[in-house]
Amino acid sequence: MSRISHTFEKLSARGEKALVAFLSAGDPDRERSMAAIRALVEGGADVLELGVPFSDPTADGPVIQRASQRALSAGMTLPGVLSMAGEIRAEFPDLPVVIFSYYNPILSMDGRFHAEAVAAGADGLLVVDLPVEESDELTGSWDEGLDFIRLVAPTTPKERMKAICEKASGFVYLVSMTGVTGSEGLKQEVAATCARAVKSVTGLPLCVGFGVSTPEQAGLLSRAADGVVVGSAFCKMLEQGAAPDELRDFAASLKQGMKESGK
């Protein structure tokens, strides 16, 4: 069983929901990014999404755009992200690590991505701009070792949801709203309705993300899902120079929000 599946089973047995934490890897530089990751795990993050910074992030709002830019300016690359994943694996043997990327950096590795990601100890891959129609060219030759996390959006019709979920592994990522990352105006009811629709077509764990920035939101969303993804809110704190302790405490408050909501 993959580390991702194992984590969701363990949480489910405890009646807990997963806090999935996203950071743009290498923001503002490798060392501080590693410190931020340690703080988030200490605060209770159950799954880590390591964002691969990209020059043209068309699905991201201004916060993650700037985070990517800072990481790129500090010299981060996809091989650099995999090397960070290796370091994280050594420190946190049980923590699922998902590489979150646009397709072009992966394409530029010329088929070497799968082997190098597995060797680094990564558990999954999510490619924002690789829909189910095009993904065979990447995953077609994959064997075991890496879960392929797929996105479902509020605009996705049910038949299509089914087709996507059939090809997914690890967990399914529901985009909570029609918009880029970090958008405002999250509507819990809409997201919850979508979440129920996804749950009706798959047995995989479901995580909801985009626009979640408070413990209350995380709590409410977690009722309809198995986990909640928070990204822009962490990136914003880093941008404002937050210390690792603050990140840890904020992660803990999100986790607490989810626990209380589940009671």
């Binding site: 829909p131 959006a153 509020p154 985009v175």
Partner: peptide
């Protein structure tokens, strides 16, 4: 091909 976010695929 079509290399876009899922949100845009149905459109």
């Amino acid at each position: 091909g079509r290399y876009v976010a899922e949100t845009l695929m149905p459109a």
